[in-house]
Design a protein around this nucleic acid. Structure first.
Length: 658
DNA sequence: AGCACGCCGACT
DNA sequence: GTCGGCGTGCTC
């Protein structure tokens, strides 16, 4: 029997030139511990230079003609790189023209030696699947069964409203849906990965899962716990038994050999955009993993992202909707102020006023505003010009009713402000932040408790007692029993932003807020009209997504097309464009950036994606050496143009501020 | 990234 | 003759 003694190793380096497997001889003394998946140290090029990496495979065939070096050492005997995670990382990196090591950085947490010692023995609490298929509330049993057992992919519309999953613990019904899907997957002996964009959503999900799944079958893999706990949970995920894995965007990279299901809650949330290279969106990673492992994949949300809409139209995703639940009662209203004296004081239309008044008789009322603070903008009371800081010319804002206006940019207090246009000295507030809205509504509805929930005042839950809850978008607390009325006040203001995704984002913010209403409670949307308002009233956000995607097709904007931004020295960018393996749809730019750098955006078709990514990666590799040659000797590095060519696929940044 | 290899200008 | 400059290429 020939003993396998060659280790194929992925070097843990961000260098694209090293993003391939290297063969090393396994010395006799490491034969026991040098298994696939373990982290190792290996020599590179010359002795004395030791780098870290992972063994991807142990084999007895050499794929390299030269003389092999030997593994230096095994860092830990735990196989932290699961085979399915390696496959995924490779695919994700290839799609994004990035390196597998960069992708693995997202999925493999920092080693914590103590966690390895205290790891519980998987045999101590063996898991036996119950086998009984659990129902998923509000969804047709047949549709769910088809989805989960035949490994289908779906865009799933979440049921609206809130539900009490434990005594006194209310969460959005979406969380219950996710938990039920996971419990069902677990009962079938398979792992479910559940991802949420932020901790507020994750907490709701944890509560919903805890009601259905034993605590020792649940693993949190987010970064908000101690390194020891996180690494401990990560190791347990490798033990071969099924779990419900809960986490944020990097949870899609969790080890799970018997993966049954991935669910992403609210895939349109920008927090799913990874900010580390190669900047792969969680949605794309999940889609690749579904293909590789054949698991089920669900995009659960109240509003549909244009990306998911595209996949639905292609037939890649099915569409599933809940039944037996009444859609929210949405009332769109023009931005007109009420005749009522008190309502006029709070600058809200009379229908919104009436809804709030009636709602407060029964319980909490949610008021969603666009901005935190008191007055987001100040103007000269005499000439109406935007008031600017006397030192840096930044815009002025006021944080609370009594505070002195200050500069948004430099923070300087504008105590002795004087208008640079007309020499006026009096300021006038423009617009309302959460604090001012709270002030005014508090006066308009005396005797009711006013709760502010925004970035500075995080509130996750409120009681069923009547109260006014003023929240910035995305910061809305969950109310016990649901809100008795929901007011969306700053529709026009939120839509005024010039961005590719404004309308899509607004629909998502509004839908998510409206979904917090109690069954049958009214939601008044102020200042929104047209297709947006219609899709809220009919609660058919997919209609809006369809129209929005059609617009993007016409404009050739993502996600109708794919895009790549190329940044670097003019010659390198030009060469990259010239060497593209396919004809791009078009080339935008180049645009000059500082230090002799240019940026070009290319738009191309999805089917050209793999070839484009492969070619761009090759050019990035080539450019790392070419660019060095152009470095003038003697000049300090800081004055040099950034070396090489940078490539960013599916970068939406250039389209965010149009 | 690092580090070695290699091919042209000033030196003992 | 050869010491050493940095452009070029490779890393199992």
């Amino acid at each position: 029997m020939s003993e396998a003694s060659i280790a194929r190793v992925l070097i843990d380096s961000p260098l694209p030139q090293l993003d391939r497997l290297f063969d090393y001889a396994v010395p006799e003394e490491l034969r026991q511990t040098a298994r696939a998946g373990v982290r190792v140290k290996v020599p590179l090029k010359t002795l004395g230079r030791v780098v870290e990496g992972w063994i991807v495979e142990i084999t007895d065939t050499v794929g390299f003609a030269g003389k092999l070096s030997e593994l230096d050492s095994v860092i830990s005997p735990f196989p932290v790189l699961a085979p399915e995670v390696w496959t995924l990382a490779r695919a994700v990196a290839d799609r994004a023209a990035g390196t597998a090591a960069d992708v693995l950085r997202l999925g493999i947490p920092k080693r914590h030696a103590r966690a390895e010692k205290s790891l519980p023995d998987a045999n101590e609490s063996p898991y036996s699947p119950s086998g009984a298929p659990q129902p998923v509330s509000y969804f047709d049993a047949g549709a769910i069964s088809t989805l989960l057992s035949e490994s289908k992919r779906a865009a799933m519309a979440a049921p609206t409203g809130v539900v009490e999953v434990a005594p006194g613990r209310w969460v959005g019904r979406w969380a219950q849906t996710m938990a039920e899907l996971a419990a069902r997957t677990l009962a079938g002996g398979q792992t479910a990965i559940l991802a949420t964009p932020d901790y507020r959503d994750q907490e709701q999900l944890e509560a919903a899962v805890a009601a259905l799944v034993p605590a020792d079958r649940t693993l949190r893999l987010d970064a908000r716990q101690s390194d020891q706990r996180r690494y401990g949970n990560f190791l347990r995920a490798h033990d071969g038994t099924p779990y419900v894995i809960i986490g944020n965007r990097s949870a899609v990279y969790a080890p799970a050999a018997h993966l049954g299901l991935i669910v992403l809650w609210d895939d349109g949330d920008p927090l799913y955009s990874e900010h580390l290279t190669p900047y792969v969106h969680t949605r794309d990673a999940a889609l690749l993993r579904q293909e590789k492992q054949g698991c089920s994949l669900v995009f659960l949300s109240h509003s549909r992202s244009t990306e998911v809409q595209r996949l639905v139209e292609l037939g890649w995703l099915g569409a599933v909707s809940p039944g037996g639940i009444r859609p929210p009662k949405v009332i769109p209203t023009a931005n007109q102020e009420s005749q009522d004296r008190l309502a006029a004081m709070a600058r809200i239309p009379s229908s919104a006023w009436k809804a709030a008044r009636a709602g407060l008789d029964e319980g909490p009322v949610l008021v969603q505003v666009a901005r935190p603070g008191y007055a987001p903008r100040l103007a000269c009371a005499d000439c109406s010009q935007t008031a600017r800081c006397t030192t840096c010319a930044g815009p002025l804002a006021q944080r609370s009713a009594s505070s002195t206006p200050s500069c948004v940019w430099c923070g300087a207090l504008a105590a002795k402000w004087r208008c640079r246009e007309c020499d006026g000295t009096r300021l006038r507030m423009v617009g309302s932040g959460s604090a001012r809205t709270a002030d005014e509504l508090g006066r308009a509805f005396p005797g009711f408790r006013v709760i502010i929930a925004d970035g500075d005042h995080p509130v996750t839950t409120v009681s069923a007692e009547p109260s006014l809850v003023i929240a910035t978008r995305g910061a809305e607390p969950v109310a016990d029993g649901g809100y008795r009325a929901v007011l969306l006040l700053d529709g026009a203001g939120m839509l005024a932003r010039e961005s590719l995704r404004v309308a899509e984002d607004c629909l998502r913010w509004w839908s998510n807020a409206i979904a917090l209403a109690a069954d049958g409670a009214p939601a008044v949307v102020v200042g929104a009209g047209g297709a947006l308002a219609t899709s809220l009233v009919t609660w058919r956000q997919e209609d809006f997504a369809r129209a929005e995607l059609a617009d993007r097709r016409e404009l050739r904007f993502p996600p109708a097309v794919r895009v790549a931004t190329l940044t670097g020295r003019v010659a390198l960018v030009a060469e990259a464009i010239e060497k593209l393996p396919v004809d791009p749809i078009d080339v935008l730019g180049p645009v000059d950036l500082p230090d002799g750098i240019v940026r070009t955006i290319i738009r191309f078709d999805y089917k050209a994606g793999p070839a484009v990514a492969e070619q761009l990666k090759a050019l990035v590799v080539a450019a790392t050496t070419v660019s060095r040659g152009s470095r003038k000797p003697g000049t300090p590095r800081a004055n040099q143009p950034a070396p090489g060519l940078r490539v960013h696929l599916d970068d939406l940044e250039p389209f965010v501020d149009l």
